[in-house]
Design a protein around this nucleic acid. Structure first.
Lengths: 318, 318
DNA sequence: AGTATAGGATCATTTAAACTTATGCTTCCA
DNA sequence: TGGAAGCATAAGTTTAAATGATCCTATACT
């Protein structure tokens, strides 16, 4: 059905150079090799592509048509193959990374920007989604790796066979917070189970059980029914609502770092250490990591250990 | 520089089918053959294109990129290769023909239309130009063949080495004509050299010597200086001027056939047979004619011998 | 005219690669 | 638990591509 592709390559060079010898030089072949390949292509297509004119080769109608087909491809290939072809000595090429929306918008682009200043040949494609869609994309090859809030160990992910390698990269601290005025009025230093239990609560729709978990973690007791005055499906909106003083809510510590520093938002600590949520790097177990992938992974984890960011992630340590 | 093209073909099939065995079947190869070619491509590009996941192959970023490069080409090739690939049993493909404007506009499209009803796989590209540009295009491969008013024999064309084969296909009769009123007033049956010599003349700018040639042909004498009242560079305009009664002019017989039939235009004959101009089919001597080319050539010459057209070309026979 | 040169075709030979068969490994599924 | 399915690997064979030598023809050179 389809002709031999290498012969198309030979044809392309002969056509552009209008010469068999020149094409042979360009292709690092002998003249007879090119001559024969061309003839075989003509035999395959059952149509002459050139009329042999004593000294020159003159393309026929079929030759002209074929060239118009082949030319854009070869040109494009010549342009873009270097972006795909990987150098072994330095990171290059496309990196496709998934992350939770909050983490992705806040930190990832910064990492990418700095990384690109070191290795300008690296390109990024970031996807921000929930855990399950991200894992699916990794599984199907749409992502090189994903940063996911995972509470599971490798092999325990429901719906996925044991195909992932899961490496924790960062602890997110989940803290109960409220606005400064709300704190003064409603809490005023009393962090007891009894006191907190009957306040107003705001929570994220995606993970409504987080409040229960927080109480369990800090007091080893589950509250019966909390007074949830609002549910939202965006972490930003949740923080806004908390700042307005609508009540108490569990927030990711590093995302309210600034507000806590300014005293706008007050964390409610207990004698227990903070509740933590692991952000893990998930990738296909069998995937041989590219130099680029490895370098960025290391870069990212290094950046995360950096004082400034780490501080934010541990800001609310009692 | 560029990778092995056949491996790209293998890659294309593996990617689309997401399976080495399936690709092997489609390519009529064994499974290890495909497996090896894929590995060699990866080695060439120094980048893994798939992560081998137990049962499945999952494309990497590089694989995805490469596929985006290769896919449109293979798809286009699959679509269009059949238009280039020539069947041996029936005419098909593109035919690029050149002709003089007058002949080309008047007859060629008709021929093409009828021919396409017989062989719908044939496409045409017609070019209407003067003799020299047409010959140049044939020489450089822009045309498969050209119909040209040629006064030369093969090998005698100035500026061209002996690369053409020239076959006369049609005699155009060149006749001296004028409008019916002009004829009655100025000629009135007197077709003698002496009488004609001092009339008004109109001629084509491209070939001003045609009048001299006409006199030479019919009376074996060249006129000294004719009273040329207008020169034009379009045959249509020349005929218009003649019809208006501006004087005498040499026209191509078949192009004024209708006007002569209607008595609008009167041919001026002598005892000599009409002066003829050969329309020849010119092509590269060494070009092996395609089935399509041969078929259309035969078709065209047959059509030209057909009563209706032939009559026009010989309408003014004395 | 005679010779040199350049571009391409052809042929026989060598060489390289692509393909095949056989086999092994691992996962998936009944 | 024992196939079946999917891919990788290894070794051997076959095919086809590349080469070097030679030939052919037209053009350029003198």
């Amino acid at each position: 059905m389809l002709p031999d592709f290498n012969r198309l390559k030979v044809f392309y060079h002969v056509y552009t150079l209008n010469s068999v010898v020149a094409a042979a030089n360009e292709l690092c072949l002998s003249q007879p090799a090119v001559s024969q390949q061309l003839q075989k292509l003509e035999a395959e297509l059952k149509v002459p592509l050139f009329t042999r004119l004593h000294k020159k080769l003159v393309p026929t109608a079929a030759g002209e048509q074929l060239f118009k087909l082949v030319e854009p491809f070869v040109d494009k290939l010549q342009d873009e193959i270097s972006h795909i072809r990987q150098p072994q000595d330095r990171p290059a090429g496309l990196l496709r990374i998934g992350a939770p929306r909050e983490f992705g918008t806040e930190y990832l682009p910064r990492f990418c920007h700095i990384f690109r200043q070191l290795y300008p040949e690296v390109m990024f494609r970031l996807k921000f989604k929930e855990a399950i869609p991200l894992l699916t994309m990794v599984k199907e090859g749409g992502l090189d790796y994903a940063l996911v809030d995972v509470y599971f160990k490798a092999g325990e992910l429901p719906g996925f066979p044991d195909i992932f390698s899961i490496d924790p990269v960062l602890k997110e601290e989940m803290i109960l917070v409220c606005s400064q005025p709300y704190y003064q009025q409603e809490i005023a230093g009393d962090h007891s189970f009894k006191n907190l239990l009957h306040k107003e609560f705001i929570t994220d729709e995606d993970d409504p059980s987080i409040l229960t978990l927080w109480f369990k973690h800090h007091f080893r007791k589950s509250p019966d029914n909390l007074n949830i005055v609002m549910t939202l499906d965006s972490h930003e909106a949740l923080i806004s609502a908390l700042k307005l003083g609508m009540g108490l809510g569990v927030a990711t510590a590093h995302l309210v770092w600034d507000e806590i520093q300014r005293g706008e938002i007050v964390p409610i600590a207990t004698t227990q250490p903070n509740m933590v949520n692991m952000i893990s790097l998930v990738q296909l177990q069998d995937k041989v990591p590219t130099l680029t992938e490895k370098t960025f992974r290391n870069f990212m984890t290094a950046k995360m250990q950096q004082t400034e960011i780490l501080k934010r992630f541990q800001c609310a340590e009692p």
